[in-house]
């Protein structure tokens, strides 16, 4: 009997927490589907009296500013994800399996970057990028975001676990350096690479401070900065929520498809049992 009561309370609390955590998302979704344009939302009015997709139609119309923000977001998250997966693995492989002079020195030269917070060099980055003509271009994200030290480190740990005999066998079979990497190292480290891909995508997709500072023309905003500008122009509740849903959906799909890897990725570099 006591056990059943405890069980009951367990579920009541868990479900209540789920309601608290998910309610803002529900408000956002219904706000975006509301047929009526609102400038305030209350406990009784968050549920639409009539549903409509007109917010999405107007917001995503061809040539509209938000379609451009979607495109910008896709470019500055998908490309660094692809280059990142490739380079993080390649560099991880080099530092894990190759012997060459200066290996330790170069490795720690790279690792030093982990200590420097992004926010601490934002001013000098702005100065550098304006000298290079990168302000309001994709280069400000594609070049610095080409690979990530933390994920290189993670791939190095993964690849170090590949037995040398496997690589040696490939070499004896006449595989060159690139073929060994592409046909043996890459396929074997798939789980690690998936984690890198997901986190690179998430970090770039949700990146706010970078695009906020390195883009000044509205056309070059990414979705997150665009949403924040709508916020400040006091766009209607429904329009902001629609922009919010559009910003959220890609992350939602990635999360649903690769949940397992999120757990692996978040605990990267944490205490190893």
């Amino acid at each position: 009997m006591k056990k059943r009561i405890l069980n009951f309370f367990f579920y009541v609390i868990c479900i209540l927490l789920c309601v608290i955590f998910l309610f803002p998302f529900v408000v956002m979704l219904f706000g975006s589907l509301d047929g009526e344009t609102k400038y305030a939302v209350t406990l009784t009015s968050w549920f639409p009296t009539q549903f409509s997709l007109k917010q999405y139609q107007s917001v995503l119309s061809v040539g509209g500013r938000m379609s451009r923000w979607v495109l910008n977001s896709v470019i500055i998250s998908v490309i660094p994800t692809i280059t990142g997966v490739f380079l993080d693995a390649l560099l991880g492989y080099i530092f894990a399996k190759k012997r060459f002079p200066g290996r330790q020195l170069i490795f720690w030269y790279f690792m030093a970057a982990i200590m420097v917070p992004y926010q601490a060099t934002i001013v000098s980055n702005y100065l550098l990028y304006s000298w290079l003509g990168w302000i309001n271009t994709y280069w400000a994200f594609l070049i610095p975001g080409m690979w990530t030290v933390l994920y290189m480190f993670m791939m190095r740990q993964n690849i170090a676990a590949i037995p040398d005999a496997l690589l040696e066998a490939a070499r004896i079979d006449g595989a060159g350096e690139w073929r060994t990497f592409l046909q043996i190292v890459l396929p074997v480290s798939k789980p690690g690479l998936s984690t890198v891909a997901i986190f690179s995508f998430m970090n770039n997709w949700n990146n706010f401070m970078g695009p906020l500072i390195f883009t000044t023309s509205e056309k070059m905003y990414n979705l997150v900065v665009g949403l924040s500008s709508l916020n400040q122009q006091s766009a209607s509740f429904n329009m902001q929520m629609t922009a919010g849903v559009i910003t959220f959906i890609p992350m939602f799909l990635v999360y649903m498809a690769f949940q397992k890897y999120f757990v692996d990725g978040i605990t990267v570099g944490s205490v190893k049992g």
Binding site: V224, V225, N231, F237, Q240, A243
Partner: peptide
């Protein structure tokens, strides 16, 4: 509990700006 875990993790994957813009209204 598998569902609860997904639900509680939801805000982590969401952009701060998205969450903050909903909060401003709520």
């Amino acid at each position: 509990t598998a569902f609860f875990k997904s639900a509680w993790f939801f805000p982590v994957i969401t952009s701060v700006v998205v969450v903050a813009s909903i909060w401003k209204w709520m």
